[in-house]
Amino acid sequence: MTGEVTPPADDGRLVGSDRVLAVLKELSRYPDGVGLDELTRAIGSPKPTVHRALGALRRAGLADQDARGHYMLGDEFLRMAFAHHEARPEHVRIRPLLETLAARFGETAHYAVLDGREVVYRAKVDPPTGAVRLTSTIGGRNPAHATAVGKLLLAYRLDTPEAVAEWVGDEPLVRRTPHTRCTAEELHEELRAIRAQGYSVDDQENEVGINCVAVPVYATSPVLPSGALSVSGLTYRTPLRALVDAVEDIRALLGHLGEPR
């Protein structure tokens, strides 16, 4: 039937559209391009089938091939990705605030949303000055339980010990640093405190030497945060106490976007 998506093979092999999408995702890891042999090994599919997938992507403008014969993401893919990103309403409204915060603190400001057990960074602004900057990227992900933005967004979705335990499930939470809270009991207590105070912190829980404060953003819903805005600082340069002391100023900059309606 036209438009039907081919399901994955029972033995885990990639087939049909799943293979094409796997090739597209793998290409994103090679900004300078990748040869067919290396791409075939990474995908784990026969070379002719990977080559056919590349052909389909090239015909759609989603992949390209340079003079060396290496494959990379195509201009049409980049056009669509950036056009979609720039058109997101929350991104358009939040970015000026991120610029203000990055300039004020001399640290990096983010806007992130929750996606399952991870957060996705939708916008990022680095400080205008400063030799040391964070390596986070737009579209990048981090474990929700180890980040200020993630814990804040979880706090408004998991409001009972049972809900937290169900979210944690049987899969262990990754311990990013010695400070990461990795049990359902620890996470529940943290989320309860976040709901009471209205903001969240990351005290070197995702990366040693980096701390962060986050506040909710109500860009698309009047009752549930659509995302979280954060300021992340190097511990030697901006202590966590300085970020916490500025929470009310950050809320004031957000205005109505920082309050439920």
Rank of each mutant, 00 (worst) to 15 (best):
V231S: 02
A246F: 11
D249A: 14
R241L: 10
I250V: 15
A242P: 00
L243Y: 09
G227P: 01
L253Q: 14
L234V: 11
T220C: 09
V231I: 11
T220D: 15
V231Q: 01
G233Y: 03
P239A: 13
Y236Q: 08
I250D: 05
E248W: 03
T235D: 04
A228G: 14
I250K: 07
G255K: 02
L224C: 05
L243Q: 04
D249G: 13
T238L: 09
L229M: 08
L224D: 05
T220L: 13
S232G: 06
E248S: 14
T235L: 04
V247H: 01
T235H: 03
A246C: 10
V223R: 07
T220N: 13
S232M: 11
L240V: 12
D245A: 15
V231T: 08
T238I: 09
V223P: 01
P239N: 11
Y236F: 13
S232D: 00
P222G: 08
S232R: 02
I250R: 06
S232E: 05
P216C: 09
L243R: 05
S221I: 11
L234G: 09
D245N: 14
L229T: 05
A246N: 09
D249Y: 01
D245V: 08
R241N: 10
L224P: 00
P239L: 12
L253E: 14
A246Q: 13
P222Y: 06
T235F: 02
Y218I: 07
V247A: 08
D249L: 06
S232L: 07
A252P: 04
L243C: 12
I250L: 08
S226V: 12
A242C: 04
L229Q: 03
L234C: 06
V247T: 12
T238M: 10
E248K: 10
R241F: 05
D245Q: 12
P225D: 02
R251Q: 08
R237Q: 15
G227H: 02
P239Y: 12
A228F: 09
R237T: 13
L224W: 06
T235K: 04
T220S: 14
A246R: 01
E248C: 05
L254V: 15
P216E: 09
A242S: 13
V244G: 04
L254W: 15
A246P: 00
A228V: 11
P216K: 07
L229H: 02
S230T: 13
P216R: 03
S226E: 15
G227L: 07
R241M: 10
A246D: 15
V244D: 03
L240K: 10
T220M: 11
S226N: 13
S232F: 11
G227I: 10
V223L: 12
P225E: 04
A252Y: 10
A228M: 08
G255T: 11
P222E: 10
V247L: 06
V217L: 00
P216I: 10
S221F: 05
Y236N: 07
E248P: 06
P222C: 07
L243G: 09
Y236G: 07
A246S: 15
G227C: 04
Y218W: 08
A219P: 00
P225S: 06
D249C: 01
S221K: 01
S232C: 10
L253G: 14
L243T: 12
T235N: 04
R251C: 03
